[in-house]
Amino acid sequence: MNRNELQEVVTPAQSILVSTRPGEQSAGAPGSSGLSIDIVVNRQRRQLDVDPRASLLDLVRDHLHLMGTKKGCDHGQCGACTVHLDGRRVVSCLMLALQADGREVTTIEGLAGPNGSLHVMQQAFIDHDALQCGYCTPGQIMSAVACVREGHANSVAGIREYMSGNLCRCGAYVGIVAAIQDAAPRMQGAEP
């Protein structure tokens, strides 16, 4: 028997967050141009008005000013904008901000401990020089943490395959693989 663990509790037949036309807002969606969403970002709950067209990436950068999440292609082709949505890695450029309503987002800024201590994976990236220009690095690290949690970091081949959604133009792949190999066993004990 294999049931999807992520089944949501289904509420009775109703729709939420309806707007009929842009600008004409329905109830519960205040603001002149946007719809209201309720979102937890890096453990902080936020209520935000968003343009329905906005991506989660642009929401995080332009509205929350969390600049660690990067735009490299804006079409889900490079992975620089990788964040965790309810604990799973996604490319935030290909997701409507509206679709993150009610969900929990973790960006690179939320990965370190509350006291500023680096995540095991962040330290491993430093130790193995798994970066050069640093632009793709936040996305790589968010992906790497997810890769380990998913159980895909048990072999070099697995790491390479499951890190292939994150382009590194500087070509730090050898270091990235080494960093994940190093961090994976240590993440088991270090993570809740």
């Binding site: 430093i126 130790d127 690290i141």
Partner: peptide
């Protein structure tokens, strides 16, 4: 020597 700007880069704190 470790990359001197790596700590900021792994935290997403490097300003581009």
């Amino acid at each position: 020597v470790a990359r001197v700007d790596a700590r900021d880069k792994v935290r997403g704190m490097t300003p581009y």
